[in-house]
Design a protein around this nucleic acid. Structure first.
Lengths: 181, 181
DNA sequence: TAGGGCATGTAACCCGTTACATGATTGA
DNA sequence: TCAATCATGTAACGGGTTACATGCCCTA
Protein backbone atom coordinates (compact mmCIF):
# COMPACT_ATOMS: atom_id res chain seq x y z
CA UNK A 1 0.00 0.00 0.00
CA UNK A 2 2.66 2.47 1.00
CA UNK A 3 4.35 2.18 -2.38
CA UNK A 4 1.13 3.17 -4.14
CA UNK A 5 0.62 6.13 -1.86
CA UNK A 6 4.19 7.25 -2.33
CA UNK A 7 3.86 7.08 -6.12
CA UNK A 8 0.55 8.93 -6.08
CA UNK A 9 2.15 11.58 -3.88
CA UNK A 10 5.08 12.02 -6.24
CA UNK A 11 2.76 12.26 -9.23
CA UNK A 12 0.66 14.82 -7.39
CA UNK A 13 3.70 16.86 -6.48
CA UNK A 14 5.76 16.63 -9.65
CA UNK A 15 3.10 16.25 -12.29
CA UNK A 16 3.04 13.53 -14.97
CA UNK A 17 6.22 11.43 -14.92
CA UNK A 18 7.63 8.21 -16.28
CA UNK A 19 8.53 5.24 -14.13
CA UNK A 20 12.13 6.18 -14.67
CA UNK A 21 11.51 9.70 -13.36
CA UNK A 22 9.63 8.35 -10.37
CA UNK A 23 12.46 5.99 -9.54
CA UNK A 24 14.87 8.92 -9.54
CA UNK A 25 12.48 11.06 -7.52
CA UNK A 26 12.23 8.26 -5.01
CA UNK A 27 15.94 8.20 -4.58
CA UNK A 28 16.39 11.92 -4.32
CA UNK A 29 13.42 12.83 -2.15
CA UNK A 30 11.67 9.93 -0.38
CA UNK A 31 14.92 8.09 0.09
CA UNK A 32 15.29 8.44 3.85
CA UNK A 33 11.66 7.67 4.56
CA UNK A 34 10.77 4.93 2.11
CA UNK A 35 12.72 3.00 -0.53
CA UNK A 36 11.77 1.48 -3.84
CA UNK A 37 13.70 0.49 -6.92
CA UNK A 38 12.59 0.60 -10.54
CA UNK A 39 11.93 -3.15 -10.51
CA UNK A 40 9.23 -2.53 -7.97
CA UNK A 41 7.92 0.70 -9.45
CA UNK A 42 7.27 -0.43 -13.04
CA UNK A 43 4.97 -3.36 -12.19
CA UNK A 44 3.17 -1.27 -9.57
CA UNK A 45 2.40 1.46 -12.09
CA UNK A 46 0.88 -1.14 -14.40
CA UNK A 47 -1.36 -2.39 -11.59
CA UNK A 48 -2.29 1.15 -10.61
CA UNK A 49 -3.27 1.89 -14.20
CA UNK A 50 -5.46 -1.22 -14.17
CA UNK A 51 -7.10 0.09 -11.00
CA UNK A 52 -7.72 3.49 -12.56
CA UNK A 53 -5.46 5.45 -10.21
CA UNK A 54 -3.13 6.58 -12.97
CA UNK A 55 -3.25 6.73 -16.76
CA UNK A 56 -0.63 6.58 -19.46
CA UNK A 57 -0.82 10.13 -20.62
CA UNK A 58 1.78 9.89 -23.36
CA UNK A 59 4.41 7.64 -24.85
CA UNK A 60 7.73 9.15 -25.76
CA UNK A 61 11.01 8.06 -27.22
CA UNK A 62 12.71 4.87 -26.04
CA UNK A 63 9.41 3.40 -24.91
CA UNK A 64 9.02 6.13 -22.33
CA UNK A 65 5.55 6.09 -20.77
CA UNK A 66 4.34 9.16 -18.95
CA UNK A 67 1.88 8.45 -16.17
CA UNK A 68 -0.55 10.99 -14.78
CA UNK A 69 -2.61 10.73 -11.61
CA UNK A 70 -6.39 10.43 -12.12
CA UNK A 71 -9.06 12.09 -9.95
CA UNK A 72 -9.64 8.66 -8.43
CA UNK A 73 -5.95 8.44 -7.62
CA UNK A 74 -6.03 11.87 -6.00
CA UNK A 75 -9.04 10.89 -3.93
CA UNK A 76 -7.36 7.73 -2.73
CA UNK A 77 -4.22 9.63 -1.78
CA UNK A 78 -6.17 12.22 0.14
CA UNK A 79 -8.23 9.54 1.85
CA UNK A 80 -5.17 7.66 2.97
CA UNK A 81 -3.46 10.75 4.32
CA UNK A 82 -6.54 11.80 6.27
CA UNK A 83 -7.85 8.47 7.49
CA UNK A 84 -4.95 6.10 7.67
CA UNK A 85 -3.46 5.74 11.11
CA UNK A 86 0.07 4.90 10.13
CA UNK A 87 1.74 2.15 12.10
CA UNK A 88 4.30 3.62 14.46
CA UNK A 89 6.56 0.63 14.15
CA UNK A 90 9.89 1.57 12.80
CA UNK A 91 12.54 -0.80 11.59
CA UNK A 92 15.96 0.61 12.09
CA UNK A 93 19.16 -1.37 11.97
CA UNK A 94 21.10 1.38 13.65
CA UNK A 95 18.61 1.55 16.50
CA UNK A 96 18.89 -2.21 16.87
CA UNK A 97 22.63 -1.81 17.13
CA UNK A 98 22.14 0.85 19.76
CA UNK A 99 19.87 -1.44 21.68
CA UNK A 100 22.41 -4.24 21.80
CA UNK A 101 25.37 -2.11 22.82
CA UNK A 102 25.09 -3.02 26.51
CA UNK A 103 26.13 -6.58 25.72
CA UNK A 104 29.57 -5.25 24.78
CA UNK A 105 32.08 -4.29 27.38
CA UNK A 106 32.12 -0.50 27.83
CA UNK A 107 35.34 0.14 25.89
CA UNK A 108 34.00 -1.68 22.85
CA UNK A 109 30.64 0.03 23.21
CA UNK A 110 32.22 3.48 23.11
CA UNK A 111 34.21 2.51 20.02
CA UNK A 112 31.05 1.33 18.29
CA UNK A 113 29.19 4.50 19.25
CA UNK A 114 31.92 6.66 17.87
CA UNK A 115 31.62 4.92 14.52
CA UNK A 116 27.88 5.44 14.59
CA UNK A 117 28.38 9.10 15.42
CA UNK A 118 30.57 9.68 12.36
CA UNK A 119 27.91 8.29 10.09
CA UNK A 120 25.24 10.52 11.51
CA UNK A 121 27.40 13.61 11.31
CA UNK A 122 27.85 12.87 7.61
CA UNK A 123 24.13 12.46 7.26
CA UNK A 124 23.37 15.75 8.97
CA UNK A 125 25.73 17.50 6.57
CA UNK A 126 24.00 15.87 3.63
CA UNK A 127 20.57 16.88 4.82
CA UNK A 128 21.67 20.44 5.51
CA UNK A 129 22.98 20.67 1.97
CA UNK A 130 19.67 19.39 0.65
CA UNK A 131 17.88 21.91 2.84
CA UNK A 132 19.89 24.76 1.38
CA UNK A 133 19.17 23.56 -2.14
CA UNK A 134 15.46 23.00 -1.72
CA UNK A 135 15.05 26.07 0.47
CA UNK A 136 11.45 26.76 1.35
CA UNK A 137 9.94 24.93 -1.60
CA UNK A 138 6.80 23.35 -0.26
CA UNK A 139 7.18 19.71 -1.25
CA UNK A 140 9.60 17.86 0.95
CA UNK A 141 10.17 20.81 3.23
CA UNK A 142 8.38 19.40 6.26
CA UNK A 143 9.86 15.97 5.81
CA UNK A 144 13.36 17.34 5.44
CA UNK A 145 12.88 19.25 8.66
CA UNK A 146 11.56 16.05 10.22
CA UNK A 147 14.61 14.13 9.06
CA UNK A 148 17.08 16.75 10.25
CA UNK A 149 15.55 16.90 13.69
CA UNK A 150 15.71 13.15 14.03
CA UNK A 151 19.31 12.87 12.97
CA UNK A 152 20.28 15.65 15.35
CA UNK A 153 18.40 13.90 18.14
CA UNK A 154 20.32 10.73 17.40
CA UNK A 155 23.64 12.55 17.61
CA UNK A 156 22.67 14.03 20.97
CA UNK A 157 21.70 10.56 22.15
CA UNK A 158 25.04 9.15 21.00
CA UNK A 159 26.95 11.91 22.79
CA UNK A 160 25.06 11.45 26.04
CA UNK A 161 25.37 7.69 25.89
CA UNK A 162 29.11 7.90 25.25
CA UNK A 163 29.36 10.23 28.25
CA UNK A 164 27.40 7.86 30.48
CA UNK A 165 29.42 4.84 29.49
CA UNK A 166 32.72 6.69 29.76
CA UNK A 167 31.84 7.74 33.28
CA UNK A 168 31.17 4.08 33.95
CA UNK A 169 34.60 3.15 32.67
CA UNK A 170 36.10 5.90 34.82
CA UNK A 171 34.54 4.30 37.85
CA UNK A 172 36.18 1.06 36.78
CA UNK A 173 32.66 -0.17 36.67
CA UNK A 174 31.11 -3.06 34.86
CA UNK A 175 27.54 -3.10 33.66
CA UNK A 176 25.90 -4.25 36.87
CA UNK A 177 26.68 -1.00 38.60
CA UNK A 178 23.59 1.04 38.99
CA UNK A 179 23.78 3.91 36.57
CA UNK A 180 22.24 6.99 38.09
CA UNK A 181 20.72 9.73 36.00
CA UNK B 1 20.97 -11.06 9.37
CA UNK B 2 19.43 -8.60 11.79
CA UNK B 3 17.13 -11.25 13.21
CA UNK B 4 20.10 -13.44 14.07
CA UNK B 5 21.91 -10.61 15.73
CA UNK B 6 18.85 -9.64 17.70
CA UNK B 7 18.39 -13.20 18.95
CA UNK B 8 22.06 -13.49 19.87
CA UNK B 9 21.79 -10.21 21.73
CA UNK B 10 18.75 -11.35 23.68
CA UNK B 11 20.43 -14.64 24.57
CA UNK B 12 23.52 -12.75 25.69
CA UNK B 13 21.45 -10.39 27.80
CA UNK B 14 18.88 -12.76 29.29
CA UNK B 15 20.79 -16.03 29.38
CA UNK B 16 19.48 -19.33 27.99
CA UNK B 17 15.91 -19.04 26.76
CA UNK B 18 13.33 -20.91 24.73
CA UNK B 19 11.98 -19.69 21.43
CA UNK B 20 8.82 -18.82 23.26
CA UNK B 21 10.72 -16.68 25.76
CA UNK B 22 12.62 -14.97 22.98
CA UNK B 23 9.40 -14.16 21.16
CA UNK B 24 8.06 -12.52 24.31
CA UNK B 25 11.32 -10.68 24.92
CA UNK B 26 11.18 -9.41 21.37
CA UNK B 27 7.77 -7.97 21.95
CA UNK B 28 8.53 -6.38 25.29
CA UNK B 29 11.99 -5.00 24.60
CA UNK B 30 13.06 -4.83 20.93
CA UNK B 31 9.54 -4.09 19.80
CA UNK B 32 9.97 -0.48 18.71
CA UNK B 33 13.29 -1.11 16.99
CA UNK B 34 12.82 -4.46 15.31
CA UNK B 35 9.91 -6.90 15.04
CA UNK B 36 9.70 -10.66 14.75
CA UNK B 37 7.01 -13.20 15.51
CA UNK B 38 7.43 -16.76 16.74
CA UNK B 39 6.88 -18.13 13.26
CA UNK B 40 10.07 -16.41 12.22
CA UNK B 41 12.02 -17.09 15.40
CA UNK B 42 11.60 -20.87 15.65
CA UNK B 43 13.01 -21.72 12.21
CA UNK B 44 15.80 -19.19 12.65
CA UNK B 45 16.91 -20.80 15.91
CA UNK B 46 17.09 -24.16 14.15
CA UNK B 47 19.31 -22.66 11.45
CA UNK B 48 21.46 -20.92 14.02
CA UNK B 49 21.94 -24.19 15.87
CA UNK B 50 23.01 -25.80 12.59
CA UNK B 51 25.55 -22.99 12.18
CA UNK B 52 26.89 -23.48 15.68
CA UNK B 53 25.83 -20.09 17.03
CA UNK B 54 23.49 -21.54 19.63
CA UNK B 55 22.94 -24.94 21.21
CA UNK B 56 19.94 -26.67 22.68
CA UNK B 57 20.99 -26.65 26.29
CA UNK B 58 18.00 -28.45 27.70
CA UNK B 59 14.56 -29.74 26.83
CA UNK B 60 11.77 -29.12 29.28
CA UNK B 61 8.10 -29.87 29.62
CA UNK B 62 5.74 -29.35 26.69
CA UNK B 63 8.56 -29.73 24.19
CA UNK B 64 10.25 -26.63 25.52
CA UNK B 65 13.76 -26.23 24.12
CA UNK B 66 16.19 -23.98 25.90
CA UNK B 67 18.78 -22.38 23.64
CA UNK B 68 22.10 -21.01 24.84
CA UNK B 69 24.54 -18.83 22.94
CA UNK B 70 27.87 -20.47 22.04
CA UNK B 71 31.27 -18.75 22.11
CA UNK B 72 31.04 -18.64 18.32
CA UNK B 73 27.71 -16.90 18.61
CA UNK B 74 29.12 -14.38 21.05
CA UNK B 75 32.02 -13.69 18.73
CA UNK B 76 29.70 -13.12 15.79
CA UNK B 77 27.53 -10.77 17.81
CA UNK B 78 30.52 -8.76 18.99
CA UNK B 79 31.95 -8.66 15.49
CA UNK B 80 28.72 -7.36 14.01
CA UNK B 81 28.30 -4.69 16.64
CA UNK B 82 31.85 -3.45 16.22
CA UNK B 83 32.35 -3.77 12.49
CA UNK B 84 28.98 -3.53 10.86
CA UNK B 85 28.12 -0.11 9.56
CA UNK B 86 24.38 -0.26 9.87
CA UNK B 87 22.40 1.14 7.01
CA UNK B 88 20.88 4.46 7.97
CA UNK B 89 17.82 3.87 5.85
CA UNK B 90 14.70 3.85 7.92
CA UNK B 91 11.31 2.73 6.77
CA UNK B 92 8.64 4.67 8.51
CA UNK B 93 5.06 4.90 7.38
CA UNK B 94 4.40 7.90 9.56
CA UNK B 95 7.38 9.73 8.14
CA UNK B 96 6.10 8.95 4.66
CA UNK B 97 2.80 10.46 5.65
CA UNK B 98 4.62 13.53 6.91
CA UNK B 99 6.43 13.80 3.64
CA UNK B 100 3.26 13.77 1.61
CA UNK B 101 1.34 16.30 3.70
CA UNK B 102 2.07 19.21 1.36
CA UNK B 103 -0.14 17.64 -1.30
CA UNK B 104 -3.13 18.26 0.95
CA UNK B 105 -4.69 21.65 1.33
CA UNK B 106 -3.61 23.26 4.60
CA UNK B 107 -6.83 22.61 6.51
CA UNK B 108 -6.70 18.89 5.75
CA UNK B 109 -2.99 18.80 6.54
CA UNK B 110 -3.56 20.23 10.01
CA UNK B 111 -6.33 17.71 10.65
CA UNK B 112 -4.02 14.86 9.64
CA UNK B 113 -1.23 16.19 11.82
CA UNK B 114 -3.51 16.42 14.82
CA UNK B 115 -4.37 12.75 14.44
CA UNK B 116 -0.69 11.91 14.18
CA UNK B 117 0.01 13.95 17.29
CA UNK B 118 -2.47 11.97 19.36
CA UNK B 119 -0.83 8.72 18.45
CA UNK B 120 2.59 9.93 19.42
CA UNK B 121 1.38 11.33 22.72
CA UNK B 122 0.04 7.85 23.50
CA UNK B 123 3.34 6.36 22.54
CA UNK B 124 5.32 8.71 24.73
CA UNK B 125 3.12 7.74 27.67
CA UNK B 126 3.71 4.06 26.95
CA UNK B 127 7.46 4.49 26.76
CA UNK B 128 7.54 6.51 29.95
CA UNK B 129 5.69 3.75 31.73
CA UNK B 130 8.18 1.23 30.40
CA UNK B 131 10.99 3.49 31.54
CA UNK B 132 9.62 3.60 35.07
CA UNK B 133 9.26 -0.17 35.14
CA UNK B 134 12.68 -0.99 33.75
CA UNK B 135 14.33 1.82 35.67
CA UNK B 136 18.08 1.87 35.25
CA UNK B 137 18.51 -1.77 34.37
CA UNK B 138 21.32 -1.84 31.87
CA UNK B 139 19.79 -3.80 29.01
CA UNK B 140 17.30 -1.79 27.06
CA UNK B 141 18.03 1.40 28.94
CA UNK B 142 19.93 3.15 26.16
CA UNK B 143 17.47 2.09 23.52
CA UNK B 144 14.49 3.16 25.58
CA UNK B 145 16.11 6.54 26.01
CA UNK B 146 16.75 6.60 22.26
CA UNK B 147 13.11 5.83 21.55
CA UNK B 148 11.76 8.42 23.94
CA UNK B 149 13.93 11.16 22.51
CA UNK B 150 12.79 10.34 19.00
CA UNK B 151 9.12 10.31 19.86
CA UNK B 152 9.44 13.62 21.70
CA UNK B 153 11.28 15.07 18.70
CA UNK B 154 8.43 13.96 16.47
CA UNK B 155 5.86 15.67 18.68
CA UNK B 156 7.87 18.89 18.58
CA UNK B 157 8.03 18.60 14.80
CA UNK B 158 4.27 18.08 14.60
CA UNK B 159 3.61 21.10 16.80
CA UNK B 160 5.92 23.35 14.83
CA UNK B 161 4.53 22.11 11.53
CA UNK B 162 0.96 22.69 12.66
CA UNK B 163 1.97 26.19 13.71
CA UNK B 164 3.60 26.92 10.36
CA UNK B 165 0.66 25.66 8.36
CA UNK B 166 -1.88 27.41 10.58
CA UNK B 167 -0.06 30.69 10.07
CA UNK B 168 -0.31 29.96 6.37
CA UNK B 169 -4.05 29.49 6.64
CA UNK B 170 -4.30 32.69 8.65
CA UNK B 171 -2.69 34.56 5.79
CA UNK B 172 -5.37 33.09 3.58
CA UNK B 173 -2.44 31.61 1.76
CA UNK B 174 -2.21 28.63 -0.51
CA UNK B 175 0.91 26.55 -0.93
CA UNK B 176 2.65 28.68 -3.49
CA UNK B 177 3.21 31.47 -1.03
CA UNK B 178 6.76 31.56 0.08
CA UNK B 179 6.88 30.36 3.66
CA UNK B 180 9.49 32.32 5.54
CA UNK B 181 11.30 30.85 8.50
C1' DT C 1 30.95 3.56 -33.92
C1' DA C 2 31.43 2.99 -29.20
C1' DG C 3 30.17 4.20 -24.67
C1' DG C 4 27.13 6.18 -21.43
C1' DG C 5 22.82 7.40 -19.90
C1' DC C 6 17.75 6.76 -20.81
C1' DA C 7 14.08 3.55 -20.34
C1' DT C 8 11.66 -0.65 -19.41
C1' DG C 9 10.92 -4.91 -17.99
C1' DT C 10 11.41 -10.08 -15.71
C1' DA C 11 13.03 -13.71 -12.39
C1' DA C 12 14.87 -15.51 -8.29
C1' DC C 13 15.36 -14.94 -3.80
C1' DC C 14 14.94 -13.38 1.05
C1' DC C 15 12.41 -11.66 4.71
C1' DG C 16 8.41 -10.78 7.30
C1' DT C 17 3.32 -11.31 8.30
C1' DT C 18 -0.86 -13.80 8.80
C1' DA C 19 -3.16 -17.77 9.34
C1' DC C 20 -3.41 -22.56 10.19
C1' DA C 21 -2.50 -26.48 13.14
C1' DT C 22 -1.32 -29.22 17.14
C1' DG C 23 -0.62 -30.72 21.71
C1' DA C 24 0.84 -30.39 26.87
C1' DT C 25 0.15 -28.39 31.35
C1' DT C 26 -2.02 -25.80 34.92
C1' DG C 27 -5.48 -23.75 37.68
C1' DA C 28 -10.37 -22.64 38.47
C1' DT D 1 -13.32 -30.90 32.97
C1' DC D 2 -12.84 -26.70 30.71
C1' DA D 3 -10.39 -22.67 29.58
C1' DA D 4 -6.25 -20.29 29.43
C1' DT D 5 -1.60 -20.30 28.73
C1' DC D 6 2.60 -22.56 27.44
C1' DA D 7 5.06 -24.22 23.56
C1' DT D 8 6.23 -25.44 18.94
C1' DG D 9 5.83 -25.72 14.42
C1' DT D 10 4.22 -25.21 8.98
C1' DA D 11 2.15 -22.91 4.86
C1' DA D 12 0.69 -19.27 2.00
C1' DC D 13 1.24 -14.86 0.74
C1' DG D 14 2.97 -10.22 -0.06
C1' DG D 15 6.58 -6.89 -0.37
C1' DG D 16 11.27 -5.65 -1.27
C1' DT D 17 16.12 -6.46 -3.09
C1' DT D 18 19.39 -8.15 -6.35
C1' DA D 19 20.51 -9.64 -10.54
C1' DC D 20 19.53 -10.48 -15.22
C1' DA D 21 18.17 -8.88 -19.76
C1' DT D 22 17.09 -5.82 -23.54
C1' DG D 23 17.09 -1.96 -26.54
C1' DC D 24 17.09 3.13 -27.86
C1' DC D 25 19.24 7.56 -28.33
C1' DC D 26 22.80 11.01 -28.08
C1' DT D 27 27.41 12.61 -28.01
C1' DA D 28 32.31 12.28 -28.54
Amino acid sequence: MSLRIALLGLLRASGPSSGYDLAKSFESTLNYVWQAGHSQIYPELVKMAADGLVTVEAEGARGRKVYAITPEGSAQLRGWLLEQTPSLTVRSESALQAFLLPVLDPVDAVAALERVRERYVEKVAMLETLCDEHGSKAFGRYALDHGLRHVRTTIEWVDDTIATISRDIGHGGSCDENVAD
